[in-house]
Write a protein that binds this DNA or RNA. Structure first.
Lengths: 151, 151
DNA sequence: GTCACTGCAAAGCCTTTGCACTGTG
DNA sequence: CACAGTGCAAAGGCTTTGCAGTGAC
């Protein structure tokens, strides 16, 4: 813990967003940011809370929920609601290349992938129905190679 | 209201499932089935409850929840959890052709579509990562043509 | 008659909100 | 020092569960 942010790009983006909106950078927000980016996978609020509490035992649910919402608004995080249970968050890297998920229904492994051809077909489908696309969500569920062996 | 089921195929499938599992066909279940299939679109529990209460004012939430779960297990219904709010159900027609959804983020209209090419690409993606696909879920969000005009 | 089903109300998740206190800018 | 942010606990949706009474088989 040097005090220097480990993720300068995200940190900068957050600062810019906050400045633009008259918000404040608090210790909690910095710590949540570090924990969130350090996790390097999809994290839920409960898990994040656990991570941050190592540094900041008194922090409450509400703060994490509110902060993650802030991160989403500032473009640092994306919210994912998978089929089961609670919302997970993942870092939104600056480059806007969208990706989707492949999820093992047995062990819960999540693999990220992207496919330009599918994206184009999606646009096509939307156009055919007179829609303008703003977003999409695609999850493939199956068994990963490990779990196939075990099954 | 003749007493004869309006949807003999689904009715039969439900009967078979119940017989096989030692379950009982109650008035409530029949009425929920009629209301569900009659809706001909994605319905949530609350809406279904409203429909069924016209016939059966005293029916409770829990019964509808439990019955929809039964319908899902028996293969009559599919559960869909879209990004916002509550679970919706839709009839699972005997033919297994999968379809996905296009959802207007302004008025909530849901359009069903299917695209063979996308399905194939999905299989390809899964294979590339060593997965065997069992299911998927794809939702496109955007503005329908009506809402584009208004916006 | 049995045993599954029902309706009600209570409890369970996850998430949001209200409020008095705190701390950033 | 103003006003956004925090922590707590309470309240909110949606869904599930426990229980005593009911009704299908």
């Amino acid at each position: 813990m040097t005090g220097a942010p480990s993720y300068p790009a995200a940190h900068a983006r957050l600062l810019a967003y906050m400045k633009a909106h008259g918000l404040k950078l608090t210790r909690q927000r910095e710590q949540i940011l570090e924990a969130f980016l350090g996790a390097e996978k999809h994290v839920g609020v409960e898990e994040l809370l656990g991570l941050v509490r190592r540094l900041q035992p008194g922090i409450g649910h509400a703060t994490v929920y509110r902060t993650m919402k802030l991160f989403v608004d500032s473009g640092i995080a994306t919210e994912r609601k998978f089929s089961e249970g609670a919302t997970l968050y993942e870092p939104e890297d600056g480059g806007h290349h969208h990706h989707d998920h492949l999820i093992c229904t047995r062990c819960g492994t999540i693999v990220e992938w992207e496919n330009e051809a599918i994206e184009e077909l999606q646009e096509q489908v939307a156009r055919q129905h007179g829609f303008v696309l703003t977003d999409h969500k695609m999850e493939l569920y199956g068994l990963c190679s490990n779990c196939q062996k075990k099954a």
